[in-house]
Design a protein around this nucleic acid. Structure first.
Lengths: 174, 174
DNA sequence: CTCGAATAGTACGACAGCTAACTATCAGCC
DNA sequence: GGCTGATAGTTAGCTGTCGTACTATTCGAG
């Protein structure tokens, strides 16, 4: 199943879809250094699988993930639950044009409102409405429960190791 | 900086952007169980940061990431470097309509060609052209080098731990 | 052998993101 | 005080993906 270059890792654990891809590459391009591809392959797979797994919960509250992200950023910023669009775009790693678009949708749904900034007429404050506050509080409650459910198959030790490893990687690349 | 609920983990390591988000939530919604949010937050951050970090290499070969993925799937499948669109869509987790679109672009660029399947007139074979073969071989060489570079700040032990943890998570959720 | 169900690929319309260009406003330097 | 450059937000056009509907073909139960 695995090639002759199987590591101790692949012997301890069953081969997964990423391992099969690595085996294909080893056979076709034995000259390549594939030492890093496993990590990136698994990260990509996880992203593809987790996206719909998380999206479903947001949809139950009438939200897309991007919209939830905006509401959540406002909610966790604390009273008065306002941020300026540029700050939102920066923390959510979105273009400002994209943020204009999201805010248009959220405002049309009555979840946020734009208020003029009295001290800077270029800018404005995006504020959670009462309804936005209610919706995001309900959504985030379900969201964290969903996240916990997705990790429920891992032991506390495995979670700790995973979190530590992800933290290490994040610190290394940013 | 961190709240009273800081764990041993946060004491051993400097606080990052995800920790700050967790601290905000702890303060605003102390009722929530945030034990899983750190892992998902870091996975999301990694995805956002790594996407452009990988895209740059593909762009040097005139490719988008999605296009590279198709060429790579064909290349690593081995001779005769042929797959049917449905199989490509499934392994790349893309809708068949999206695959039609990608193949249109790749065919217009002369990197793949569609061949009729003599045994099933509903279907066809997508084949790497000579140029496609050359382009993807060059691109994947640079790509794996780029991946190795991105992980170069990690020790071999840290890489092994990370890969093992990701493998565990992938097995748990899929 | 035939007819309904399943499968393969595509066309079409909707949608959310991006870049670039634009308007308006602020900040700093002389 | 009045330019110059930076910043805030929006608009317009492009792109890649998706869901849905459609045609053509194959499979399978009877």
């Amino acid at each position: 199943m695995t090639t002759q270059s199987a590591t101790a890792e692949t012997l301890r654990n069953p081969s997964d879809a990423v391992d099969q891809i690595l085996d294909q590459w080893r056979k076709e391009r034995p000259d390549l250094d594939l030492s890093a591809m496993g990590v990136f392959g698994r990260l990509g797979q996880l992203s593809l699988i987790l996206t719909p797994a998380l999206e479903g919960v947001f949809a139950q509250h009438g939200l897309r993930r991007g919209e939830f992200d905006v509401l959540a950023a406002l909610r966790r910023s604390g009273p008065p639950y306002t941020l300026i669009p540029s700050a939102l775009a920066k923390t959510l790693m979105l273009s400002r044009a994209g943020m204009t678009n999201r805010l248009d949708r959220l405002e049309a749904d009555g979840l946020v409102e734009r208020r003029l900034d009295p001290t800077d007429r270029r800018s404005l404050h995006v504020a959670l409405t009462g309804r936005g506050h209610t919706v995001v509080d309900a959504a985030v409650t379900d969201h964290v429960a969903n996240e916990s459910r997705l990790l429920s198959a891992l032991t506390p030790d495995e979670r700790e190791t995973l979190d530590h490893a992800l933290r290490t990687l994040l610190r290394a690349i940013e």
